[in-house]
Design a protein around this nucleic acid. Structure first.
Lengths: 346, 346
DNA sequence: CTGTTAGCGCTTTCAC
DNA sequence: GTGAAAGCGCTAACAG
């Protein structure tokens, strides 16, 4: 009836005795440090295995003495989503200092590869770990790899550089996010046929391009009654998005759905309402003060969201686990694609 | 450009010096232990405030020596959702033992108030914290309050006892979950009018009753074209659910939507397919091997889910924070109502 | 290559 | 009421 999930609490000393060596040697083996005869290593490893020994993290943490430092390299300029991530990091400050973890925010132009790369290179040696909202570009990849080689733990945040040797990516699968958006628009349109508009920041941004790709996949294969219009590039600006969309709405009376891939949400909503096209199914990204209001008003029908609080905390936890050499709880750190509608607003 | 989120790393000793007292006294004040003159308390508190001192959790944890023990009181009998929670706890075993945390599973009949209450009473004194899938009943409430009075930290899991003095509830708002289900059924039906069926385990279960309540709210206020049929009570059994639903489908040719509130999903799916009513919009709860398959096949249209992995980890983290006297990261521990469709299956 | 030893910052007795 | 002192289980420097 009762089943236990944990084992006895042995210590390094117990293992040392059992393997017939000293504390220091066990410690060396535990951390794969050099200077131990292969045979000794084996004996110690066996003792560790046999007892499924787990070193006490609190003791290890205390003994190191040195505090750990992490850097978050984020886009400069106002971006509500990034501000949310920063705010959630701020909420963790008590948690962080109780663990003697220092987190620093570094603002940089993440859209300029050489600037971003330079910012990263400048960090070398100063931090135990770095989380970076990265641009997928060869120069950036090289900078990331250099940091990795220098022993810094690297996590890409929100936007990945899969070709680099970063240790972990904290963010969503944007193709799947686009597919989800497509399925929502298609289903919520409810069998009517007509045209579907897409407003994106820029197709040059990897995440936007991937979302559009996924969206089109689903449209083509599952909703033959809907035809997708060419992508409008609003550069994530309200004014430009509004203007482009207003023009498009004027030209097509049969637009039944709209996918807003990035920001510029205010402009998109305005264009819809001024054209009196409130019936258009409107799906966008992220839960902000604005999208929350639009969802409640019924202007937006759904938002695809990647929980910024979760991303912030996951990035910290992953960096910490990497720095400590602890395993990562993959399931816990995986960022889900949230579908947010009026009734499940967080 | 760089902004730091943490403060200098003072120690108890620094505070002691600054307040002109010894280590032991600061420790007493920090933990509100008796035996310190009011005036001394004030002086120490001020020194702590002034430096926004945070004790080092690792050091505290190490010094206590004693390991912490938590119990999870869960329903006996096979229940895929509960099994998932157990599995996720199992995945944490390394994490747990590295922190010298012991977690024990205790199976009991959580649907029988007196049996459940007895199981809880039996735990008194043996555990630092208890997570319990609770029935909302006066006897159970009393048992919970007794444990709380004995100093045990209590978290209700999945199913709450709001009238008790439990320290925390880890689970979703079931009324909002029902509303979300209602909005989905209504929207996915796509403007057609007709009838909507509800299959529940039992209306006597608080969570089922709340979900139905929320579902009906939305139906009544937002989808006047849809009329909700009387609730079928399938007792979460496949055979019974299938039989009841088959009969209902036979009687109403104009059923366009279906909300499956609890388990019995297999039976519900079977009744639909055998009646050839695959077009009915089908929304249910939880992502299991079965619902995953049904979503992929297009039989189910959406599942409302409460992430069992998150619930398991949140329960452990909350119990740990409570036991340590650390603050709880509310945002992190809040369980969201996930809408899962084919393309955002986790 | 291996062992000894001095802490890390708290908690907890035990004295005063 | 308050303080002194002995660890908790590791890590890291130094000695051999």
């Amino acid at each position: 009836m009762a089943e236990t999930l944990t084992t006895a609490a042995l210590t390094l000393k117990d293992i040392a005795r059992e393997a017939g060596v000293s504390l220091a040697t066990v410690d060396r083996v535990l951390h794969n440090r050099p200077g131990v005869r292969a045979d000794t290593v084996r004996r110690v490893r066996e003792a560790i295995e046999r007892n499924s020994f787990q070193p006490h993290v609190a003791a290890a943490e205390l003994a190191r003495g040195r505090a750990r430092r992490f850097a978050f390299v984020m886009p400069s300029g106002p971006n509500p989503f990034m501000q949310q991530i920063e705010a959630y990091l701020g909420e963790m400050s008590g948690w962080l200092s109780a663990r003697r973890l220092g987190v620093e925010m570094i603002a940089t132009d993440v859209f300029d590869a050489s600037v971003l790369a330079a910012s990263l290179e400048a960090l070398s040696g100063d931090y135990d770990g770095v989380a970076v909202v990265a641009l997928d570009h060869p120069t950036v990849r090289a900078a990331i790899n250099d940091l990795v080689d220098a022993g810094t733990k690297i996590v890409t945040l929100v936007s990945d550089v899969p070709s680099s040797r970063r240790h972990h990516y904290v963010g969503i699968d944007n193709i799947a996010a686009g597919r989800t958006a497509g399925a929502l628009v298609g289903r919520l349109v409810g069998g009517r046929s007509g045209k579907v508009a897409i407003v994106a920041g820029s197709q040059g941004l990897r995440d936007h391009a991937e979302r559009i790709f996924g969206f089109n996949q689903v449209m083509a294969s599952e909703f033959p009654g809907l035809s997708v219009l060419p992508v409008l590039e609003g550069r994530d600006e309200d004014a430009r998005s509004e203007q482009l969309l207003a023009r498009l709405l004027g030209r097509h009376a049969d637009i039944v759905g709209l996918y807003n891939v990035g920001a510029g949400t205010q402009g998109v909503a305005k264009a819809l309402s001024e054209a009196g096209r409130d019936k258009v199914v409107f799906v966008g990204h992220d839960v902000t003060a604005l999208t929350r209001r639009l969802l409640l008003q019924g202007v937006m029908d759904a938002a695809i969201s990647q929980n910024p609080g979760h991303e912030a905390r996951a990035a910290v936890r992953v960096l910490l686990a990497l720095a400590r050499g602890e395993p990562i709880l993959r399931e816990q750190e995986k960022i889900r694609i949230d579908i947010v509608m009026r009734d499940n607003l967080p």
